[in-house]
Design a binder for these strands. Sequence first.
DNA 1: CGACAGATGAGAATGAGAATCATAATCTCT
DNA 2: AGAGATTATGATTCTCATTCTCATCTGTCG
Lengths: 167, 167
Amino acid sequence: MRINFKMKRTAPKKISTAAHERLASWIAARGLKSTRQRDLIVDTFFSQTGHLSVDELVEKAKQRDPSIGAATVYRTMKILTDAGLASARHFEGGQTRYEAALDRHHHDHLICTSCGNIAEFENERIEELQDRVAEEHGFTVTHHKLELYGLCAACRQRQSNPNRQRQ
Amino acid sequence: MRINFKMKRTAPKKISTAAHERLASWIAARGLKSTRQRDLIVDTFFSQTGHLSVDELVEKAKQRDPSIGAATVYRTMKILTDAGLASARHFEGGQTRYEAALDRHHHDHLICTSCGNIAEFENERIEELQDRVAEEHGFTVTHHKLELYGLCAACRQRQSNPNRQRQ
DNA sequence: CGACAGATGAGAATGAGAATCATAATCTCT
DNA sequence: AGAGATTATGATTCTCATTCTCATCTGTCG
């Protein structure tokens, strides 16, 4: 199954200065350097919403500076992830996707296999049950992955009314 | 995180003739052919327990017939999957792992990130909650992925008693 | 400024898996 | 059993995401 994920366009996001500050101290704390490219990529990332692939990020970054290399984007996203400012997700489809993680609660995902739309949800009850299951098996859970794949409302509609809404 | 998954050694499995029969009719039904290699690979797969990577299968198969090619193992596992006799899992670590699927209930997984041990569980309540969540978001779920990562009992013990049990 | 550690970009390397292709094996029909 | 048609095999190549390498460049700190 080859899915063409698209971004979810939800609330507009203000470019968080908190993120920049946290990144700055993270970088300073371990002798890394602050560079033009890094800033540009970070800026680009935080000015988008949704779950971005590296490819998409590279494309957006190159619009601002065509000399940006893909390797740098990979490297930068790794730093952001390590600093807790982004989190990497591995949905079906083979690419890693990143989402902003600053001050975000843990959440899981609903993914439309038709249009690639990604919705998020939290469910405390499910988490509790997971912990209980783990406990019963003697496991200590460090992280988990819960992804629900299927059709979003729009795509279900489209499939049951195939005569309308064809591109 | 690079995890070295190992097989879970649970109940011994008798080499299911039911599986062979089902495969035979599947193969017959679509004009495929029954070959020595295919049989060998299928046999090898069903004589193992747990969640096997293609690599591991290739290795085991080559022990019986060194001329077996990796491509054939990939192809055969795809056929088994299509026939509903195996199911492919994509845990962290990058490789696809296959488990026998004949007459098996749906289940999810607990994965030890230290020793690679994989335990299985079913939880009807979690499934119900997932469906409810999906419904609230207008999604129709076709499949899902629930994986709990952490330390199994043995590895937790080992880590809290680091002076014992070091290799 | 100057040295040096860290960063960059291009391209090569990697690894899992799919595709290709010439050859080989199997099935069907008689 | 033999022929012909078709599928399978194994080696190799290809793809794709990601990482690595390396020569060069750039912050940073004294």
